[in-house]
């Protein structure tokens, strides 16, 4: 097996302690900031390079569920169990907007990468807001609670999943979004576009993976998982789709078209059910975090894979996120620890 870029050394660049289990982690698009949402509600923004606290907000009563950055890295949006989405000004520290959805939990929030538009998913309802807080569209209902939002990487196209359906919203004309429904027959848990924009992948509750091609919308299904497919990640070339269920990472080969008929690559190594998977954005490194608190980083190439680093979060693992450009891996723990590992 050929050696990929080897991590000469790995060290902790910085760490901080939050008050409760880390619910969500997000690097700002410019890489300057790391936003941390804590399950019981508070929101922290730290300087990505030093770990210095930039902002600390109360967040959402009951709990914060999701955070998302605006494309200019000026605004941080959050959603939570108080029925609201909020938009925070990273520079002044002010809460700029409070968007009331009227639903108990606002499960997801997302800035459009293409226009000044904020999307919230609350229960079965999708809403679009202008960046000054005006409601633009109120789309209801999905057949069930919306489980995921995912923007297409090149087009103003938003996928939302609910139970067994994927909705595709074309925001090319924000005044009148077009809708297309892709049917499926088992509950979808997440959604992830390939970076080349040619595939949409969804993990399913019934131990399978469902993919659609774009724009043809032909679909194919991969099954044989031992458990529900909670974690998904594409590599930057859209050659590999990494999926995790139990202690195995399954990599599907999309190098020349859909993986049908090709034997997937199975990596055994995680010590427990895989919670999260992420490819380093400008490389071929795959990071995994599992339920037992183990962190593993693999190097992948055409010849195979190799473990390049292994670490443990004693207080349990929750989330991980690669810096958009640098080889920095942010990790959030069940005990509230946030650590940024630097791979030299």
């Amino acid at each position: 097996m050929r050696m990929n870029r080897q991590a000469e050394s790995v060290h902790i660049r910085w760490r901080l302690e939050t008050t409760d289990s880390v619910q969500d982690l997000a690097w700002s698009p410019d890489g300057r900031w790391l936003a941390v949402a804590v399950v019981s509600g508070s929101l922290t923004v730290a300087d990505g390079a030093t770990g210095d606290l930039r902002q600390n907000w109360l967040g959402h009563a009951g709990g914060t569920l999701k955070v998302a950055w605006s494309r200019d890295s000026r605004w941080l949006a959050s959603s939570g169990q108080d029925g609201c989405a909020r938009v925070w000004d990273i520079t002044s520290g002010e809460e700029r907007l409070q968007l009331v959805t009227g639903n108990a939990w606002v499960g997801d929030v997302s800035f459009s990468p293409y226009a000044d538009l904020l999307i919230t998913a609350a229960g079965k309802e999708l809403r679009a807001w202008s960046l000054d807080g005006q409601p633009l569209h109120h789309i209801q209902p999905h057949i069930s609670t919306i489980t995921a939002l995912a923007w297409h990487p090149q087009q103003p196209l938003l996928a939302s999943t609910a139970y067994s359906q994927v909705h595709l919203w074309d925001w090319g004309n924000p005044a009148a979004p077009g809708e297309q429904i892709l049917l499926h027959s088992s509950p979808l848990l997440n959604a992830c576009w390939a970076p080349n924009g040619q595939y949409l992948a969804c993990g399913c509750q019934d131990n399978s993976l469902r993919c659609w091609t774009w724009p043809e919308l032909t679909d194919f299904q991969m099954s044989g998982y031992a458990s529900k497919v909670c974690a998904l990640a594409w590599d930057r070339a859209s050659h590999w789709l990494a999926t995790g269920d139990r202690e195995i990472i399954t990599l599907w080969d999309f190098t020349r078209g859909p993986p049908t008929g090709k034997v997937p690559l199975n990596i055994e190594g995680p010590f427990a059910t895989v919670r999260e998977l992420a490819f380093q954005p400008d490389g071929d490194w795959l990071a995994t975090g599992d339920q037992s608190g183990h962190l593993l980083v693999w190097a992948l190439n055409d010849q195979g894979y190799r473990l390049i680093w292994q670490g443990t979060l004693r207080g349990g693992f929750q989330r991980l996120a690669w810096h958009p450009r640098e080889r920095l891996l942010a990790v959030g723990g069940e005990d509230g620890t946030v650590a940024v590992f630097e791979f030299a």
Binding site: G63, W105, T145, T147, Q205, Q318, E334, D335
Partner: peptide, 16 residues
């Protein structure tokens, strides 16, 4: 199964 329970309890179990 009950999808809402999986989602909600999945969140509650993370709390300190």
């Amino acid at each position: 199964v009950r999808g809402d329970l999986i989602r909600i309890l999945g969140n509650l179990m993370k709390r300190r």
